[in-house]
Simulated scan of single mutants.
Amino acid sequence: MAEFDGQPGREAPPACDVSAEQAQSDEVDLHQGLSSLAHVVADARSVEDLLSDVASFAVQAIPGVDGAGVTLVEFVSGSPRAHAWAATPGFVRDIEILQYNKLQEGPCITCMQTRRPAVSGSIGSDDRWPRLRGSVARMGVHSVLALPMLIGDKVIGAINSYAYERDVFAEHAVRVGEQFAAPAAVSIYNAQLLATARESTERMRRALESRTVIDQAIGIVRSRSGIAAEDAFERLTKISQAENVKLHVVAERLVDEAVRKAQLRQGSGPQNAADVDGRD
């Protein structure tokens, strides 16, 4: 039996309402959604692209969904704060903006705080979100299923499914949704780790390149002035501060100008070049 927090005072549709044929069809849709998810992970998509894909796959995989959103969060003083999300179609984005940016309440926030799915069959009369419910109901949206995405004990976000009809999401939909949310959470988390690793590698590459060109510039200044490496570095630093440009930019400029002068001496380069250190 799926465990979830239903709407207080409203009886959810019975689990036996789902026919064998419908259950089999939902199983096929879930399998297709999970297969699609596996393919985009294999393609190493960006986190933003993956969120959009997961939102689309949730519409396909979870029965009764008219629109879905996926949210990534960070917790500030114990409260979830969205830092990335994707939604399909547009009305879901409007609901997400209300929850995170304006009201700080809603099924998505609740499910992440409780770490349990939150279900509402008539959000317009749901007392759990008194400021949100009227706005959502006026959009013509009545049912919601919010599923926390968990990695171990850590909440990384939520998948939020919405439907225009009332009482769409019962135990069957929750169970199917949880089967989709678990691997989706792993996929998104791994995509985040991969993106972080790529950013770290790129920063390291840029740092190494900068260090190399700075060392080259120091060597050029030393060869021209006969000063120590520390003094050459200080000279480059002063130029950087005086011109308010980064040190590696000063170094690159000096190295490029040294190369042009060398080409000039060989008769194959530009005819005028000035050294960064002021020497002819």
Rank of each mutant, 00 (worst) to 15 (best):
D5C: 08
D5N: 09
P13N: 04
P14I: 04
V18G: 00
A20T: 11
E21V: 10
E27A: 15
V28K: 08
A38G: 11
A38N: 07
R45G: 12
S46F: 00
V47Y: 03
E48C: 08
V54H: 01
I62F: 03
G69I: 10
L72A: 09
V73M: 06
E74P: 06
V76R: 09
R81C: 08
W85D: 11
T88H: 11
V92C: 01
E96Y: 06
I97T: 12
Q99W: 02
G106A: 00
C108M: 09
R116H: 08
A118D: 07
S120I: 02
S125M: 10
S135L: 12
R138H: 10
V144S: 09
L150H: 02
L150V: 04
D153W: 07
D153S: 13
G157S: 05
A158Q: 01
S161P: 11
A163F: 02
Y164K: 14
E165G: 12
R175N: 13
V176L: 00
A184C: 02
L208I: 10
L208C: 07
S210K: 03
T212S: 12
Q216F: 06
I218V: 09
S225K: 14
A228Y: 06
E230F: 04
R235H: 13
T237W: 12
Q241E: 15
E243R: 15
E243M: 12
E252D: 11
V255D: 06
D256F: 11
E257W: 13
G269Q: 07
Q271L: 12
V276Y: 07
R279H: 13
